[in-house]
Design a protein around this nucleic acid. Sequence first.
RNA 1: AGGGGAGUCGCCAAGUGGUAAGGCACCGGAUUUUGAUUCCGGUAUGCGUAGGUUCGAUCCCUUCCUCCCCUGCCA
Length: 562
Amino acid sequence: MAKTAEKSAVQSNFIRQIIEADNGSGKHGGKVITRFPPEPNGFLHIGHAKSICVNFGLARDYGGVCHLRFDDTNPVKEDIVYENSIKEMIEWLGFPYKDHLYHASDYFERLFEFAEHFIERGLAYVDSQSAEEMRANRGTFEKPGVNSPFRDRSVEENLKLFGEMRDGKHADGAHVLRLKIDMASPNINLRDPAIYRIRHVPHQRTGNKWCVYPLYDYTHSISDAIERITHSICTLEFEAHRPLYDWVLARLVESGKLPSPSPQQIEFARLNINYTVMSKRKLLELVETGAVSGWDDPRFWTLAGLRRRGYTPSSIRLFAERTGASKAHQWVDWVDLEGALREDLDPVAARAMVVLDPIRVVIENWPEDKVENCSAPVHPKDDSRGRREFQFSREVFIEREDFMETPAKGFFRLAPGGEVRLRYGYIIKCERIEKDASGRVATIYASFDSATKSGTPGGRNVKGAIHWVSKSDGFEAEVRLYDRLFTVENPDDEPGDYKDYLNPRSLATVRAWCEPSLRAALPDQSFQFERNGYFTPDRVDSKPGALVFNRAVGLKDGWKAG
RNA sequence: AGGGGAGUCGCCAAGUGGUAAGGCACCGGAUUUUGAUUCCGGUAUGCGUAGGUUCGAUCCCUUCCUCCCCUGCCA
């Protein structure tokens, strides 16, 4: 029975240990509720996929559920097109979100009430300093901040002002609501963090209902608690925010506004992959400057790009599983992603022969108009997949690199006077070659051995077997071959601009000869072009009669010349 | 008056006082009409550094080094 790495025992990590300890103590009654909380202001990339796999994976493994919650608290940056794209990609990745779809904006009303509650308890105040004054008074890493002159406003005045803010009586930036914690805290997040700001901007879901919007730390902790999230998993940069997360929830639990126990924030290292950049700003810039053709460029590590390139959801899940979850900064090799794809596709991808860089072969002792049928298994290890048919004829194409006029040591494909098997067909012998004006081999003239048809019992064989396509029933298609987008492992660490390290040869387009079984190929289908790699029809440009294939990843090549 | 994190094989990553799991990569070898796959076998006297405690230390204590994050009315 085929067992994929994805199904094998998951390895322990510190998050699982926490969950298991909580399950053991009965802290959450054995429940596990996680959440993936994207802000709808960009497209998902492989780093997000990792986080999605961690959160949905934990829920799945512990019989819990994972909420998809859009963190839509900043209407100036957010848009419904991002939300739709995010949903589409999560579904594509294979995780169920529809029964547990939430928005932080669902909680605007309660968030506001809680803010008034903080004011009533003397734990929040309206600050009327300018942004610049607030920054100046916040202090620095070494120096404590100083209290705002508005810090001691009365509860009544604060309530009145906050109400006016909500009612649109004040301009953007005129006031802000701040928690009253400690301006001298060594943790800057605790120096009276702002929790509400005025934005006279319509919101993509609540329209014009609000002109004050809550900020992240306040919103996120409370949203988690409202949803009874048990383990709130985020990335390392939020570690210093955890005291604030806990502070807000503890006060609200104290006064019976929120249930106990509160969710626990747990931070793990975000995923980094070499030869990429991950920041939202840089991804956007690559799109806008035309370094990539769009968010779904097959060279891009956005989920849309990976899907178009030919990556499968299961390969991405396998990759996420393999890279694990820890607090150490991880720099994963791009080749690990490729390895996961190969491993995922090898047991399932239909095989086909395609010649990417054709060189013409004329088999002189094959009758002019004769055509003979050959067949090959759709999958070499799974007969139930049936067989594919194609013709053998006088004129065929083979891969240019499968012929060497002066063969290197150890080369066992075609060379002058030598023999090679045309896979699933006959053994041929190179009799002579013809070159064009530039000295390039134009045509190989060969002879075939009629006693060597593939499958002949007791027939002789030769060491080399190469793929080929007959001119009689093959067809041409465009094939796009990709290389990494950057030439250096970490473009962010190099001197100058990261864009200086774009790889000018990240895309090569060729006209290839394909066997006839490929005529009906559709996007989302994966093929192994024998000896060449895994390919998928381009979901944007491929059309019946004018197919376009993307190479998702090459096969491993164990041959070393010389 | 700074605070919070991280350092275990090339890349990930378990182990957290009893003598260094696993995966990927790599190297052998077997099978192979894909130089692929598959299958066998190999690969850290060592856990950032220097001391200490202990019968015994990756694990506990101390020193030092390196890297990352935090001074948005972004998330």
